[in-house]
């Protein structure tokens, strides 16, 4: 006699289970449920009964396994039927017509959040990208050339004082390295590699030894823009910053320049934007110093450019009404969850 293979037997049982599952799930009234019961659990010609007969056709060695599988499937179908029966016979009214308390909480879905500083950086980068600036990044561990010399900060400059920087000792490197104190380093790196025209925004973490307080932190974020093209003037700088401020704050925002001093720009200015009838500090800016252009191999007689820098923490603190910038680094979920990032939506 030819035996039914265990494999075929199991496969048919599985198919049966899937079929029962589907039919029972689709049964929405008592009649449909009854016909499903007859089809699968019927005592005479229900499919389970038929399958049970197949059990007898298995080789003797396969019978224990076949039997276990049959029982498992039968139990499962029985349970499915019981569940469907309960569902169908439950008083419909209970679900459909009794008013539920709509003020009860829904099933909770937890929302994650992007950090408020990231939100601010993304917003700035998005606005600048509309003005043609692409985001670039560079190393945080820098050498003296990129952090100082190429930025017209010579060896005797106070900015290079060991107490004003985080210097590192690297065994394999003779020249001391440091954690970058500004993201202008990235601008130098990009200018060394590419020729004008150039529009970039460098952003990331920078480090300066400041005692942490409500407005200072030894690690903070900068966003710095750089544009180098022939014929660029301070009027372009002012216009771009005005466009930026208008987009960032909304409305037609005016900007104001105050003379300032940075080693790598000349003229150098502090930029204020008009906000709620007051001038608020936005950041530093200026025309790229000819010495910087020369340091990266550009000719200051044929190209010119401007650069500006914004302190991300300061902007974010103002934008979100955060009084103490140390809160940005406390990583308390109760704080982080408050920033819904509507600006990026």
């Amino acid at each position: 006699m030819t035996h039914l293979s265990l494999e075929t037997f199991v496969a048919e049982l599985n198919e049966l289970r899937v079929g029962a599952e589907r039919m029972l799930a689709e049964a929405t009234d008592a009649a449909a449920l009854e016909s499903a019961r007859v089809a699968f659990l019927g005592a005479k010609s229900g499919r389970l009964k038929t399958a049970q007969r197949g059990l007898g056709q298995l080789a003797k060695a396969d019978k224990p396994a076949g039997g276990r599988h049959f029982n498992a499937v039968k139990q499962e179908v029985d349970a499915l039927f019981a569940a469907a029966h309960e569902r169908v016979s439950a008083p419909i009214d209970a679900h459909r017509t009794t008013a539920i308390d709509v003020t009860l909480p829904g099933d909770s879905i937890r929302l994650g959040r992007v950090h408020p500083l990231t939100q601010t950086i993304r917003r700035v980068a998005a606005i600048m990208s509309h003005l043609g600036f692409e985001v670039v990044e560079g190393p945080e561990v820098e050498d003296q050339w990129h952090n100082f010399e190429a930025l017209a900060i010579p060896a005797e400059h106070p900015a290079r004082d060991p107490l004003d920087n985080f210097y590192l000792s690297v065994a394999s490197h003779a020249e001391p390295l440091l954690l970058r104190s500004q993201t202008s380093t990235v601008q130098i790196r990009v200018m060394e590699e590419r020729d004008p025209p150039l529009r970039i925004v460098s952003l990331g973490r920078v480090y300066r030894p400041d005692t942490a307080d409500a407005t200072h932190y030894p690690m903070f974020h900068q966003v710095e823009g750089l544009l180098v093209e022939p014929g660029i003037t301070m009027a372009h700088l002012k216009s771009v910053l005005r466009s930026f401020a208008s987009s960032f704050l909304g409305g037609d925002v005016h900007v104001r320049f105050r003379p300032s001093f940075f080693p790598f720009t000349e003229p150098s200015v502090e930029v204020d934007m008009e906000w709620n009838g007051r001038w608020i500090e936005m950041g530093g800016a200026g025309m790229v110093d000819p010495a910087v252009l020369e340091a990266v191999g550009y000719d200051p007689e044929t190209v010119s450019g401007f650069a500006f820098g914004l302190g991300v923490e300061r902007i974010a603190a103002r934008r979100f009404g955060v009084a103490d910038i140390r809160d940005f680094y406390r990583n308390d979920v109760r704080f982080l969850e408050q920033f819904s990032d509507r600006g990026q939506a």
């Binding site: 994650g112 954690l179 690690m219 982080l336």
Partner: peptide, 9 residues
């Protein structure tokens, strides 16, 4: 459901 943190480098 995660919140973004910023911890010291």
């Amino acid at each position: 459901g995660f919140c973004e943190a910023m911890t010291r480098s």
